[in-house]
């Protein structure tokens, strides 16, 4: 494991913790897209199918359990918790997220490294993760008042993707046989989706004003 991978995993972990902190302590999920959270739950469920059959390291297993547990509990909070769900911006969060899943599944059936159930599911999770942030970005754009925690959540997610790209560059030069087009291209697409957000995030930080995305 290199420093970029670790930094990527940690920013990913912090993003989830920030979100859970917001939901659990403030009892609010205002500004958070349930559509994006449901997509992440599906992403982790389909990617970690091998969690108990393919052991890599204790670190990997624990992190997988954290991401699975946190993503499903966030969805539970937003759908079922009697206080939290009242703060959900249902009318603003209208992205038709199920329509993202079908193209990702078809693409995974066509473009994969091996045509097996596990491999297709794993590829599907990569494609879906690449676009899963879209409902959240649309919601951010509609929300006039982006609170700090929501802004930090999306920033940390974007940072996680950026670190993963550095990790792949590092691994490409330090390891043999490390060419994974599917992972790289879907990862790059995913990171580029954050470019616009990053621009406005740094602008607001530099000028010390509240984050607001242009409509």
């Amino acid at each position: 494991m290199n420093i970029f991978r670790l930094a990527g995993d940690m920013t990913h972990l912090f993003s989830v913790l920030v979100l859970l902190l917001k939901i659990h302590t403030i009892k609010s999920c205002a500004g958070i897209s349930l559509k994006t959270q449901e997509l992440y739950a599906i992403v982790f469920a389909t990617r970690y199918l091998d969690i108990f059959t393919n052991y890599i390291s204790l670190y990997n297993t624990i992190m997988k359990l954290i991401f699975l547990g946190s993503s499903f509990s966030i969805v539970w909070y937003m759908r079922r918790h009697k206080i939290v769900r009242r703060s959900y911006d249902k009318d603003q969060d209208t992205f038709r997220h199920y329509f993202l899943m079908l193209p990702c599944l078809i693409l995974a059936l066509i473009i994969n490294e091996k045509f097996t159930f596990r491999e297709v599911m794993w590829t599907f999770s990569l494609y879906l993760e690449a676009v899963a942030i879209l409902p959240q970005l649309v919601l951010l754009q509609r929300t006039r008042n982006i609170d700090n925690l929501t802004g930090q959540y999306v920033f940390l997610l974007g940072a996680y993707r950026a670190f993963y790209i550095l990790n792949w560059i590092y691994r490409y030069f330090t390891e043999e046989h490390f060419v994974h087009w599917i992972t790289w291209i879907s990862g790059l697409v995913q990171t580029l989706l954050y470019a616009d957000f990053f621009y406005y995030y740094f602008q607001s930080w530099k000028n010390n004003v509240k984050l607001e995305l242009p409509a």
Binding site: D9, I56, S57, K64, E113, E175, T183
Partner: peptide, 10 residues
């Protein structure tokens, strides 16, 4: 193997 390398990430 190649597969192992891809799957060791999260």
């Amino acid at each position: 193997t190649k597969d192992q390398v891809a799957k060791d990430e999260l």
